[in-house]
Amino acid sequence: MEKLSEMKAIRAAYGEALVALGAENKRVVVLDADLSHATMTLNFSRQYPKRFFNAGIAEANMVCMAAGLSTMGFVPFCSSFAIFGAGRAYEQVRNSVAYPHFNVKLAMTHAGITLGEDGGSHQAIEDMALMRVIPGMTVVVPCDANETKKAVFAAATINGPVYLRLARPATRVFEQNMSFTLGKANVMRSGTDIVLFACGIMVATAMECAAALSQHGISVAVVNIHTVKPIDRVCVLKWAQRCKRVVTMEEHSVIGGLGDAVSDVLLGNGNFAFTKIGVQDRFGQSGKPEMLLAEYGLDTAGSLARIKTLLG
């Protein structure tokens, strides 16, 4: 069912998707805060210079400019690194975008520890938590290049704020024809012994874990929760109740992210063996992305070790 093919950076897909969206929707405008070469909004700025606004190194200002543009009927996509867009400009997102429920899309790249060498100061491990807690905010974490493109287009179809959490490194690209509906989880693989709920780059890791475990006769389900908010409660409950062993996998702090979103759904709905794979309440640091994933227990080996604690 799941065929892994090429590798492609999610942010590269974001850059391409913006240009495609901009071609079909003239109300789409893009703002960046001096990182257009890294967030890949550069493509859009070259194609549609009049609809691109560089806010300078002033993320708070960028978010409020986008709010103003949205009141004029435009659909602004704001980009920077997640640490600045969700972190530094948090209160602007909350008060100038989400409080008036403006139609602003916050597509923040370089989220999580796989930002790599720039280190812990730049690695957002809390952005999902910050965005999830805001009323009316939709939070989407695409798993690959194809899903990123679909998420960008889907975000533009709903009226309201959307946070798109985008990773930096090249990741495996799943099949093109995988369906994508905001708020509806994708079952990547069926199973009965244990379910892995994953988002973003951890979906590929979950698939590798499932393949490895199946070699030992363990039946593993993998569910891609690309929309962390509003979470697909029906799907989460169904698979958790079927498997009874639940693992969440995210490249984010285990506080406030996917793990908490899933546990909120399960609370009061049965007895489950449950563990959260993620950054265990510590900051990131410099290093190559793959080395960091291993250091933080988010690579396949580290994930398998934690999953096995539920298998007894």
Binding site: C64, M65, A67, G68, S70, M72, F74, E91, N95, S96
Partner: peptide
């Protein structure tokens, strides 16, 4: 036209509106 109250944010929003008017 704009929800405000948290100080310092309104001028940026006004800029966005002015850009939007021009673009329209």
């Amino acid at each position: 036209d704009m929800s405000t109250g948290s100080l310092g944010q309104g001028l940026s929003a006004a800029n966005g509106m002015a850009l939007g008017l021009r673009l329209s």
